[in-house]
Simulated assay, not measured.
Amino acid sequence: MEKSVMDLPEILKEQFGGETADIRTYSPLVLAYIGDGIYDLVIRTLIVRHGSCQPNKLHKRTSALVKASAQSEMIDKLMESLTEEELAVYKRGRNAKSYTMAKNATMKDYRKATGFEALMGYLYLKGETERLVSLVREGLGDTWAEEKKEEDRA
């Protein structure tokens, strides 16, 4: 069976060896760090799957979905769907004291986005990629439909 980038933690372990630390002990900011990257990759993949276009259009479409305010809205939509474990990871990320902040975000949106990214990182490292993608799909909901309409008009 072909492996995908979502299997990357397993592939890295196979290729480089070693044991992975217990992800429950990771700093929420470390989870957010990897979660930011994997969420960005998921969104970029969704955007690119709909066809080739100019890189600046790809960037604009991606940026609209990965910015802190969009992630903040997404986690609001997902709160009812999160398990207790997922909610705890989100809250740890949201409450983590970061010394930086996104330039075009409120502190509230930035913290919620950090919690969302921590959850994405946790699910990814835990190998629960189907759950991760399912939450992204649910969170995008109408936003994704609107993006598709804009894309079709362009």
Rank of each mutant, 00 (worst) to 15 (best):
K57C: 07
K13Q: 15
G17C: 04
G121E: 11
R92A: 14
E150I: 10
T143I: 00
E128C: 08
M6E: 13
E85I: 01
P9Y: 11
V136H: 04
S27H: 15
Y110M: 07
L135H: 07
P55V: 04
E147K: 00
S98A: 15
L41Y: 05
Y124R: 08
L46E: 06
Y122V: 02
A70H: 02
L8P: 07
M74E: 14
G37F: 07
T83W: 02
I23N: 13
L58F: 09
V133D: 11
M101E: 14
K77I: 00
R153N: 08
D152H: 06
Y124I: 04
S27N: 15
G139P: 05
K97G: 13
L65I: 02
G127N: 08
L12P: 04
Y90D: 11
Q54I: 02
S81E: 14
G141Y: 05
T143N: 03
Y26L: 15
S52F: 08
G51T: 03
P9R: 09
M120D: 10
S69I: 02
L78W: 01
L12W: 10
K3E: 12
L8R: 03
W144P: 06
P9W: 06
Y39M: 12
E85A: 12
E146T: 08
A96G: 12
E73L: 15
K149D: 13
A154P: 01
G115N: 04
A68H: 03
L125M: 11
H59D: 12
L140S: 07
M107P: 09
S81H: 13
G115E: 08
I47S: 04
E128A: 13
R137P: 00
V48A: 13
K97R: 15
E86A: 07
A88M: 09
E80L: 09
V5F: 13
V89E: 08
I23Y: 12
K77G: 08
V133I: 15
E130F: 02
W144G: 05
L87I: 01
K112I: 02
I34H: 13
I75S: 09
D142R: 09
I43A: 03
R137A: 09
V5Y: 12
L65K: 02
S69P: 01
G35D: 12
H59P: 00
E73Q: 15
V42Q: 09
S72K: 00
D22F: 09
S63W: 03
V66N: 04
M120K: 06
Q71S: 11
E14H: 03
L82N: 02
T143S: 12
S98D: 15
Y33I: 02
I43G: 03
K149V: 10
I47G: 07
M1G: 15
K60I: 05
F116V: 01
S27M: 12
K103M: 13
Y90S: 08
K91G: 00
A145W: 01
A88I: 00
F116T: 02
M6H: 04
M120S: 14
Y110V: 00
A102Q: 13
S4V: 08
N95C: 06
V66A: 10
V66Q: 05
R94P: 07
A102I: 00
T62Y: 07
Y33P: 00
R111W: 01
K112N: 07
R49H: 06
S4Y: 11
K57D: 10
L82V: 01
R24C: 09
C53Q: 03
K3A: 05
I34W: 13
K108G: 04
G121F: 03
R49N: 06
K148R: 11
M1C: 03
P55C: 01
I23D: 14
